[in-house]
């Protein structure tokens, strides 16, 4: 057996007395797409926050490429090779689309250099342009990010994550708030990314998940209640029970 890219062991997170995540154990192989589903408040975003260093887990440990990264500060994660998008669009609103991605690319190269001329670092421009092309935003390169349509802003956020060429990509509801047309574009983008990347994906749109993912984890009240192939999850009685009457799930 190869070492998994990411392995979480008994991970939990509490907020005061409230347990948002408890006893989650799972390992993730490279080049797979894993969907994480569960009703609202199940702890999906909390799980991502723990995996991306936004907050440390209250219990348990996280290993990335065999190395224990539990408690690593958030700003180290991009350098480790873990990048993410947020459930609520999280970009640099006043910067241009190109600058959004360029500054993300710059982080891996230089951070405290107050002396040289950043415009001379043309390879950052190329990287940024390539990432924008990958998400279909090449045409909006010079627009101010806040003036993009919602779907384009979400794509921009993915470009910002992609430009670091992360080994692990965490996408928290990339189609949140999108209409059918925008969702279709995003699904197309995700399909392209899925070919050669390791992705953890939180989503509600079941049809999309079934088409995209190799594996599905189901969270409920902070606990992992199912973990398996899409076929397996569809027939799991526990999952059916949790989603019954909820109906935002299998829609």
């Amino acid at each position: 057996m190869t070492t998994p890219l990411l392995a979480v062991e008994n991970v939990g997170r509490r907020f005061g007395g409230f347990v948002a995540l408890e006893g989650v154990t799972a390992a993730f192989e490279p080049n797979r797409v894993t969907a994480i589903i569960g009703p609202n408040g199940a702890g999906k975003s909390t799980f991502f926050n723990v995996l991306s260093g936004v907050m440390p887990p209250s219990t348990g440990s996280i290993r990335f490429k065999g190395r224990d990264i539990t408690g690593t500060p958030q700003h180290r994660f991009a350098h480790l090779g873990i990048a993410r998008s947020y459930q609520i669009t999280n970009i640099f609103p006043e910067l241009s689309v190109h600058e959004n991605v360029r500054v993300a690319a710059q982080a891996l190269r230089t951070r405290y250099d107050i002396w040289c001329n950043r415009a001379a670092m043309t390879e950052l421009d190329d990287k940024a342009d390539a990432a924008l092309a990958a998400v279909g935003l090449a045409g909006r390169r010079d627009a101010t990010a806040k003036f993009l349509a919602h779907g384009q802003q979400r794509a921009l956020e993915i470009a910002v994550a992609l430009v670091a060429d992360p080994e692990l990509l965490l996408l928290d509801e990339p189609t949140a708030g999108m209409g059918p047309e925008e969702t279709k574009d995003m699904v197309g983008l995700l399909e392209r990314l899925a070919k050669d990347r390791t992705i953890l994906l939180v989503e509600h749109k079941m049809k999309m998940i079934l088409g995209l993912s190799d594996r599905i984890l189901v969270l409920h009240h902070g606990r992992l209640i199912a973990d398996g192939s899409p076929q397996h999850i569809q027939t799991d009685p526990e999952v059916r029970r949790v989603y019954l009457g909820q109906n935002d799930g299998y829609a």
């Binding site: 991306s52 958030q74 350098h79 947020y86 999280n90 360029r102 500054v103 982080a107």
Partner: peptide, 17 residues
């Protein structure tokens, strides 16, 4: 560029590394 990124969105700047 980094200080502008921090001004614009601290969370995103941190996530960028």
């Amino acid at each position: 560029a980094v200080i502008e990124a921090v001004r614009e969105n601290e969370t995103r700047a941190r996530a960028c590394g």
